[in-house]
């Protein structure tokens, strides 16, 4: 009994952590390299979910279509991200964070109402959870899809780690996030680098959206809730640190999953309490450079 409860909560903590991580790592990357606080990050998450819904609506709600969506939709949100970076976000680089606020808020408004116009007010469902079947370990039963989600995020985490620490592109990213002027002086094509980072991060947000849609459906408002939670993760993990985002996401997933076991009536408060605690001890987050 006790073992099965702990096991169940562990897995659900990991699943929650997955989405938090995919969102927070992108936010953190964009901030680290482009020095932009991407308030509209949740909008790309929502777009990812709705696009995946549309793909399965147009083709069919089968597993194959879902895999197709998993491949195509992150590319689409990345493309949209790149486009927006070129025509909009780029113009506000270098300006202080304050000046970036107006276009970001405008973007949230526009994408939110655009989605209401295109997809309407009732949520969209991609009913593939059942198609994945279930996995049983001892007397615990899980939808197999949850393991797919956790696995996917592990692959992404490993990929990100490889990209940033083991490739030439990663060196450029790290250089730019440590000293932008110096890396520009060394002849790095920053314009292209920034576009690519923004596209990568918005692609990750889209991927999170696709992965979330079989579980939670696609609905308006999911942009706001997601981005606030992702902010908490970034604050706890430290800005610009992908590793910090990952550990903070797992920590928050665990605190929430086990918190509701002990004090179910305080559901919403654990996460913020944890954040306040971390920040009192370390104002720049667990892995932040300040």
């Amino acid at each position: 009994m006790a073992f099965s409860v702990i096991g169940l909560q562990l897995v659900s903590a990991l699943v929650s952590a997955t989405f938090l991580f995919l969102m927070a790592s992108g936010l953190s990357l964009i901030f680290g390299v482009c020095r932009v606080l991407n308030l509209a990050h949740g909008s790309f998450f929502m777009l990812g979910a709705f696009l995946a819904y549309s793909v399965t609506q147009v083709v069919s709600s089968s597993l194959e279509t879902f895999w197709l969506a998993l491949l195509l939709v992150p590319l689409a949100t990345a493309l949209l991200g790149a486009l927006l970076e070129i025509v909009l976000i780029r113009r506000f680089y270098g300006a202080n964070l304050l000046v970036q606020l107006m276009p970001m808020v405008a973007l949230i408004y526009i994408i939110s109402d655009f989605s209401r116009f295109v997809w309407g007010v009732s949520p969209g469902s991609v009913p593939v959870l059942g198609l994945f079947g279930t996995v049983s370990i001892l007397d615990l039963t899980f939808p197999a899809y949850y393991f797919v989600v956790v696995l996917a995020s592990m692959v992404v985490a490993a990929g990100l780690w490889f990209l940033i620490t083991r490739t030439r592109w990663g060196i450029l990213v790290r250089a730019a996030s440590q000293d932008r002027e110096m890396s520009a002086a060394c002849g790095v094509n920053q314009t292209r680098l920034f576009t690519m980072v923004y596209a990568l991060a918005t692609g990750l947000a889209g991927l999170a959206g696709v992965l979330a849609v079989p579980i939670s459906g696609a609905s308006l408002e999911m942009d706001m809730t997601t981005v606030v939670n992702a902010f908490v993760v970034v604050v706890v993990g430290g800005m610009g640190s992908v590793l910090g985002s990952m550990l903070a996401a797992i920590l928050i997933g665990l605190v929430n999953a086990f918190g509701i076991l002990v004090l179910p009536q305080f559901e919403m408060t654990f996460v913020y309490a944890l954040m306040a605690l971390v920040l009192i001890v370390r104002p720049t987050g667990l892995f932040g450079r300040g």
């Binding site: 699943v15 929650s16 579980i215 609905s219 009536q265 559901e267 919403m268």
Partner: peptide
């Protein structure tokens, strides 16, 4: 006791609550 859950309106991820209830 302890099996009364209150989630914010608009919540979309119920995994921890579902596993806790099933436990």
């Amino acid at each position: 006791p302890g099996c009364e859950f209150w989630v914010p309106p608009g919540q979309l991820d119920f995994t921890p609550q579902i596993t806790a209830i099933m436990g």
